[in-house]
């Protein structure tokens, strides 16, 4: 028996496999299609204080090796989340829920976190969404601003606090340090990579928002490198995501320094990926004689 539960900065996960925010709705949409017994946490779609309509259509473009999206964080706001969405989730799942939050100001981030209180098992801050001009972009692109917003949310919540970082920075280290100094409990790596697709016949951007964020298979090596860099710079545990399509991808991220992994875009094509990743990690640990999945974290030989 491989010990599969992990502790992600105070969040007790029964398995090291989570879902990534924005790819799993509010946790109820995949009931019956994804094996929830294999999940250690569900990360809900981004929540802000008030309802938000998101971007105009088209909101996505398929590319080789991935997906470019500019959904624009459509959502019903924190009150509807607490009164409707969250109770609906609790009726179908016992898996710990991570609420992903975002806002247009430091105060708004803190207010959402405070409003969630102890109703969710953990909070993940989106400080790196490249889609919403009024939203998170700048928070994740300046270590000082990042410190300020994380510190404010830290004061507003006693729950385990994760910060999801932008991959498009020269070095991840100052951002990791800012999160550490501001009192974050864990890091999430990586968010989507800014990207653009052009329709050459019409000579227009495919996305109504013009640009979006790349996710999927192609971003995986980028995620491995950033997790590796971050892990060498901090003791904070890391929830790693980015192009996890099979167990091998997840194990790479664990060896690079992650404590847990999240499956995202892959679920759109195959809802069975979560279970396959979970079972593949168990099989790998057995084959290599690891008693616990935690033994994989940062366990690079050379």
């Amino acid at each position: 028996m491989v010990k599969m539960d992990v502790n992600l900065g105070g969040l007790r996960m029964p398995t090291p496999v989570a879902t990534a925010s924005g790819t799993f709705g509010y946790g109820t949409e995949y009931v019956g299609l994804v094996d929830y017994a294999k999940l250690g946490a569900v990360t809900a779609k981004g929540i802000r204080l008030d309802p938000w309509p998101g971007n105009p259509m088209p909101r996505h473009a398929e590319v080789v090796g991935g997906l470019v999206n500019a959904i624009g964080l459509q959502g019903t706001g924190v009150e509807a989340f607490l009164s409707k969405t969250l109770p609906a989730y609790r009726t179908v799942s016992k898996v710990p829920l991570i609420a992903n939050i975002w806002g247009g100001s430091v105060e708004e981030y803190a207010a959402v976190a405070a409003r969630l209180g102890d109703r969710v098992e953990a909070i993940e801050m989106n400080v790196s969404c490249p889609n919403v001009k009024a939203g998170g972009h700048t928070f994740g692109q300046d270590p000082n601003v990042l410190f300020e917003v994380v510190a404010a949310v830290r004061k507003a919540t006693a729950r385990p606090l994760l910060v999801k970082l932008a991959p498009n920075v020269p070095s991840i280290v100052p951002y990791v340090k800012a999160c550490e100094d501001a009192g974050a409990d864990a890091l999430s790596l990586i968010n989507t990579i800014p990207a653009m697709v052009i329709d050459i016949e019409r000579r227009v951007p495919v996305l109504a928002n013009r640009t979006g964020g790349l996710s999927g298979r192609g971003v995986h090596p980028v995620a491995v490198k950033l997790v590796y860099d971050a892990h060498r710079a901090t003791k904070l545990p890391i929830l790693a995501m980015g192009g996890v399509y099979e167990a091998k991808d997840a194990i790479e991220l664990l060896l690079a320094g992650a404590t847990a992994v999240a499956v995202g875009t892959a679920t759109f094509t195959d809802p069975g990926v979560v279970a396959a990743v979970h079972d593949g990690i168990v099989a790998y640990c057995e084959r290599h004689g690891f008693a616990s999945v935690s033994d994989l974290t940062g366990n690079l030989q050379g």
Binding site: G22, G25, Y30, K45, M57, R59, H60, I71, Q74, F268
Partner: peptide, 22 residues
């Protein structure tokens, strides 16, 4: 008829504008 991603309501890619919103 819209291009879709997840098909199950999780991703919010296949939006149609309605009188009550997206």
């Amino acid at each position: 008829d819209r291009h879709m991603v997840c098909g199950v309501g999780a991703c919010y890619a296949c939006i149609q504008r309605t009188v009550t919103g997206n």
